[in-house]
Design a protein around this nucleic acid. Structure first.
Lengths: 334, 334
DNA sequence: CTGAAAGCGCTTACAG
DNA sequence: CTGAAAGCGCTTACAG
């Protein structure tokens, strides 16, 4: 910037004014400065600028995801990026892989880079380590899972009522024996979805049969094995409700392996890529992932802009996508 | 840092030494400093540190992707993140959506943030705008597509020989009439894959029939329409080679819509999520996306570390994943 | 082993 | 409308 000033024959300060688009500059001088800047290939140093600026804003936010490569995280990223871009804000992201240690490391590394805010899909069960930075003005928004031991905004889907909707759909199609396949019961969303399954049964006056409930499945292989086991029982279920992505994949594999994909109904929680190309196409309870990411980003920027209202939990509704697998009647079974 | 020094009763400089882990500090003082830092919730300011540091490194790299939300980009991101994390380097990413304007904007925004290097899946057909920053020491590595009007490292798959491998596979299974469904011919990789298709035909002594070649398809809908049209011709092909992800999806939809998925062979370029769950499972020429991303990251850091050898093009081999659709014989047709 | 001074590239807060 | 001085939080280059 000094060099630009020297070449243009003005002070460094005037160059600063031109670069920052301040209107109080003689147009002739401004043009000179711009020409000099272009000639010297001047690149504004945002990092130095932010250091001196009063508000201490870095025009950068952090995004802590489960895994950038999984579709849910990637969609959240994209939605956040779209909002951030409109404000000229950069996004620094990282994957946690469900590791609480990694969560704290990444947070520290993002704070060292002075992010203005953080959007987090938490891995650990204690976010109190963020309190200090939160009090020092770093905005925080949680996605998919609520913060633990910390008060902050969060955005998530209606896990419980969404699951209930999926199970009720099966009941509405005449099913009375509906198996539940769920993720680790230590995970809050898995608990909620299981509660939704119970809600739907209760509402329909059906008793829960623990023999066809399988929780704590954490891989598609585990889900597949559990589903095969269920399907080979003396009194097999006529329908399956799989409460998560990978579990749905396992359930489909099990059904196909036994050639029962057209006999047993299946509703999954979370949509799958190409779900409509499968045979039968898979009916799912789908989250509005882009909607969740967009809302989270807007909330974050509102906080960054100074909003200091009470933190709130925002629920984005799920929707039932009927494609075929969830509309198979129990009669076909046997 | 000044406050920490005051509390610990040492100079600011000593605090700096402790924070940076310099060994020449009295252990007693160091402990005092650390205690004071913890008490004041001191957060090191990487951004200020980098400003003063001689090498001007920001410990941050930029990643310009097609779209963070598409699986190819997301996998590249993950691979790059893994390498960057090991060096304590942050990753600032953005999506280009095939827009050359957006490419230049994002690059400018990343340079303003003083990234040490850039990994790019370019959108435009002219990257000469990067030359100045490249000469000023910013490392550059291109992924998936070669840079245009600029000399820089690049990493990509063997589009041409990979496509030839896929088509040869179909020929090996007895096919003589193999349709080609390809992306916009303005895209370099699409050209290469088409050339590979021609190579395979030529090698087998087969003449190319332009009536069953459809290029310039850019959506799955366009691919589906083209495939349906091909399948309803008087002399339909017995096999389809789809040269890209979305095009493969379109081809599958077309085959399923006509109930011919078990009669016509299909080999696609690029793998699909759940491809093994489809009926029949889809045979593809798969890229080693993680391998490409990892290599790109290593090359970038080698440049950042001072490597100034001639830029080179690195080819990561594709592999054929046989799952069923590509092994259907032509006899089944009719 | 420790510290006072200068400066990274920029903006703030003043003068003119 | 323009500029000289001070300072953001830190590290470099020197002294001691």
């Amino acid at each position: 910037m000094r060099d630009v000033g020297a070449l243009a024959g003005v002070s460094l300060k005037t160059v600063s004014r031109v670069i920052n688009g301040e209107p109080t500059v003689d147009p002739v001088l401004a043009a000179k400065v711009r020409r000099a800047a272009a000639q010297l290939n001047y690149r504004h140093n945002l990092t130095a600028s932010n250091l001196r600026r009063g508000d201490g804003r870095s025009m950068t936010i952090g995004l802590m995801l489960e895994d950038v490569a999984n579709p849910y995280s990637a969609s959240i990223y994209r939605a956040v990026e779209n909002v951030a871009r409109m404000r000229g804000v950069g996004v620094l992201a990282g994957s946690l892989d469900e590791s609480p240690e990694r969560e704290q490391e990444l947070a520290a590394s993002l704070f060292a880079r002075r992010v203005d805010g953080l959007i987090i899909i938490p891995a650990g069960r204690d976010q109190s380590y963020l309190r200090t930075d939160q009090q020092h003005g770093t905005a925080l928004v949680f996605v998919d899972r609520a913060p633990a031991l910390l008060s902050a905004d969060s955005v998530m889907c209606d896990n419980r009522s969404g699951a209930a909707m999926g199970v009720s759909h099966l009941i509405g199609h005449g099913h009375r024996r509906i198996a539940f396949l769920g993720d680790l019961s230590s995970i809050a969303t898995a608990q909620e979805r299981y509660a939704g399954y119970q809600d739907a049964l209760r509402e329909a006056g059906l008793a829960e049969d623990p023999r066809i409930v399988r929780r704590d499945l954490h891989t598609d292989a585990a889900a597949q094995a559990a589903a095969v086991e269920l399907l080979t029982r003396p009194e097999p279920p006529t329908a399956l409700f799989s409460a998560q992505n990978l579990i749905t994949v396992g359930a489909i594999r099990a059904l196909c392996a036994r050639g029962e994909q057209h006999q047993k109904a299946l509703v999954g929680f979370d949509d799958l890529t190409l779900a409509d190309l499968l045979d039968p196409p898979v009916t799912v309870v789908a989250q509005d992932v882009a909607g969740i990411g967009t809302l989270a980003a807007h909330l974050l920027f509102r906080r960054i802009d100074g909003d200091d209202s009470e933190p709130a939990t925002h629920i984005v509704r799920t929707s039932l996508v009927q494609r075929g697998s969830g509309e198979i009647p129990p009669l076909a079974s046997g």
